[in-house]
Structures are given as structure tokens and as C-alpha cells.
Design a protein around this nucleic acid. Sequence first.
DNA 1: ATCTTAAGGTACTGTGCGTTACCTATCCAT
DNA 2: ATGGATAGGTAACGCACAGTACCTTAAGAT
Lengths: 215, 215
Amino acid sequence: MSEIARKSGGRRQRRDSEELRAALLAAASEVFLEEGFQSASIEAVIEKVGGSKRAIYSHFGGKKELFLALVTDASSKIIDSLPRSDEVSGDFGWTLKTFGMEVSRVLMMPTTLALYRAVIAESARQPDVAETFFLNGPGRVAKRLAEVLNQFEASGVISIADCQRAAERFLGMLRDDVHLRVVLGLQPPPSENELEQSVDQAIEIFLRGIETRGS
Amino acid sequence: MSEIARKSGGRRQRRDSEELRAALLAAASEVFLEEGFQSASIEAVIEKVGGSKRAIYSHFGGKKELFLALVTDASSKIIDSLPRSDEVSGDFGWTLKTFGMEVSRVLMMPTTLALYRAVIAESARQPDVAETFFLNGPGRVAKRLAEVLNQFEASGVISIADCQRAAERFLGMLRDDVHLRVVLGLQPPPSENELEQSVDQAIEIFLRGIETRGS
DNA sequence: ATCTTAAGGTACTGTGCGTTACCTATCCAT
DNA sequence: ATGGATAGGTAACGCACAGTACCTTAAGAT
């Protein structure tokens, strides 16, 4: 009954509803990422959208659920901009650089940084948020890079026992102390130029190491 | 006058006072690191120590100052357990492994993890906390490792342009996705065995890279 | 003994905010 | 038209908790 009612009749309502939902999510994104989950107030979100708090409770259920929706949304969007493993060219160095640069840029985006802070802050209280973030975000990045490494492993360009772990190493090098300082707000994000130098150095180490050859 | 009074007379008072201060700090450590700064309540800290909130306000000034004192204390203590650059033996691989293992263990300690979460959560609102943490913690670790690398660079074992950055790379590899998953509470800290495998792999890459030699 | 100084304790205040109870308007089905 | 359901709005509740005003106790100085 309500099924039928919804199916045909719900159409117009649902459209408005979804617009509102999107608007709420966008506003929540601004507020939560700027202030963090706990400091952020539902009221501030509503102020940006207009309307009343009730909207949030009917659409999402509560503050926590709104946050989870936001994290799901944001972490997926961020990753979508990364190159896919099936768009990989022949040259390994070039591939690694493209991938590294793209990841570095994403890591230093204000939205990403804020999301990172907010999620870590809440991870103990909201494990589902932490899991959603990781699976949609860093987890997928590592997986993609691992696939790329696998391809090059197969063709003999490189030799790695565990591509997954190696990928995580490379990404770890990109998420280094500079990243931590930026996350902590101790320095501004690096310029494109600095990013490039950083990626180049990481690649150099990743490919050839630092030991003196011929020893 | 009050100077004189303090100088001789304050002795007994001051001793009790410092005991109390230490007890407050210890209790604050438990509460703040478990709950995070915002969720932690002054009252919970007092409950552990006995006494009244007044003690915190006279000793520290307020909730924020208490947190800063805690972070200063905790981040220094953690680092003190790390090997110093002047205790370095002749073998580079061994040195790197010792250093790597010690850092990995520290990174995975519950206290360290909680501190990391709490500081990141508050970094935007309390920049001084972020700075204190970084300078006493990760910053000092990287510096120590950089000194070690410098020594081996000088003796030609390795070849690095920028030891500071290289040290940060190595540490970045240790603070990889596994660390992030543990920080987020998605998996328990690795066993000593897993830690060792992880460090070994990081060292292998750091020293020799993954590219097929002879190409 | 008494005065002074400061730490420690009690109890209150004020506020911010998530949540909910209740009401109103809209829109489809018949 | 009309009934019924649902989204959206208004206003109030209730609670947790940082901070504080005021009092009490203790310790050293004279």
C-alpha cells in the first residue's frame, strides 16, 4: 500500500527531498570538516541550509548518521579522481610518478586533510565511520597501486614478494612527516613543485634504494 | 615577602603539591587519552584522584592547559625510550633494524596511538598542542635517524642527497596503512613477529629498492 | 598564639546543544 | 473533494559540564 503510494506518488516529493538531502550533506560537509564532529553543531548545519533541525532527523536519523553519510560520500568522491589501473601505460617510472603525484595532491587537499582529522578523532567512538573511511579511501588507493605493481611484476620490470605491502610502503613514503605536519596545521600544504620533488625522491628510493651500489 | 615565605616555608607544601600535580597528570592521561580531549571531563579526572576540580584550576589553569601539560609529558616520555645516535654500532643494516623495531613498537603502543588520535583531533583548535607533540615526538625521531644516516653517509656506506628527507621516508614506510588501520581501530596492533617482518621489508626496499637489477 | 597566604573543597551558575513532542502543510489515492 | 500519510517547522526539555564565588583548612612567620 504505502509501496504503491510511494512508487507513483512519491516522485515529486522524492525529488525535492533528495535536493534537500544533498543540500544538507553539503552543508554538513562544510561544518563537520571545519569544526570536527563533536564541535560541529546541527544548528550550524541548518543555518546554512535554512529549514529546521527536523529535516536532519527525518533524513538521516541523528548527528552520527549524518556524519557517516558525509564520510561515505566524501571519501568516495576523493578517490574517484585517481587514475585507474587499466589506464596504465608501458613505462613504470612514469606510471609511478603519475600515481604518486595524484595521490600527493589528494592527500594535501583541504577537504582530505579535514576528513582525515575528523575521522581519526571519532574513530574510537564510531568504528563504522572509521571503516567506511578506510575502505573507501586509503584502502582503495593501496589496492589500485597493488594491481599496478602486480602488472609490472608479471612483466619482470620489478621484483616484489608482496605487492600489496609494497604498495602500502610507497604510499607510506608519500604520507610522511611533511604530511603529518600539514595535518597538524604546522605548515601549509607544499606547492606543486615541492610535491614533485618529494614524489621524485620517494620513487628514487622505492626503485633503487639508498645503499651504495657496487658494494 | 611571599618569595621568602615560599623559599623556606613552601618546602613541605610544595612536595605535597607536586605529588598531587603528578597524580592529576596521571589521571588526566588515562581519561584524556581514552576519551579524547573534548569528551573527557574534568570531573572524571577528579574522580580518579579524589579531591575537587579546584585542584586542576589552581595547578594548571584549565582544561586546555591540563591537556597541553599531558601532551608535553607523554610525548617526551615516549621518545626517551628510543636509541640515541651516539649508541650506533658499525653495521648499517643492524642499526636500521634496531631503530626501526624500536620505532615500530612505540608507534603501536596503546598510549602512543591514543595520543596520536587525541592530538590530531585537537590540532586545529590548539596549535600549541600540535606543535609540542610534533617537536617532542615524531620530529625528534626523524632528527635522530637523520643523524644516524649522516654518519653512514660520511663513511660511504650509503648515498643520499638529503638525509633528513630520507629519514622521514623510512619512518613514513613504518607508519604505513597497517599503522593507519590500527590508529582507526580496525585491527589490533601487530605481533612482535609481524612487526619484524614489516621492518625487514621496509629496510629491504629502503636499501635496495624494488627494481630488477641488471636492467 | 595570631596573622597571612595559598591550597583544597562545596555548591552553584550558565550555557550550549542534541533530541523529541506536537503541530502544520503538502500531495497522492479514491 | 476528502482522507491519510509523510515531510517539515516550532518550541521546549534535559543534561552534561566547564568554570567560579565563597568558604575552610593548614602551614609558616613573628
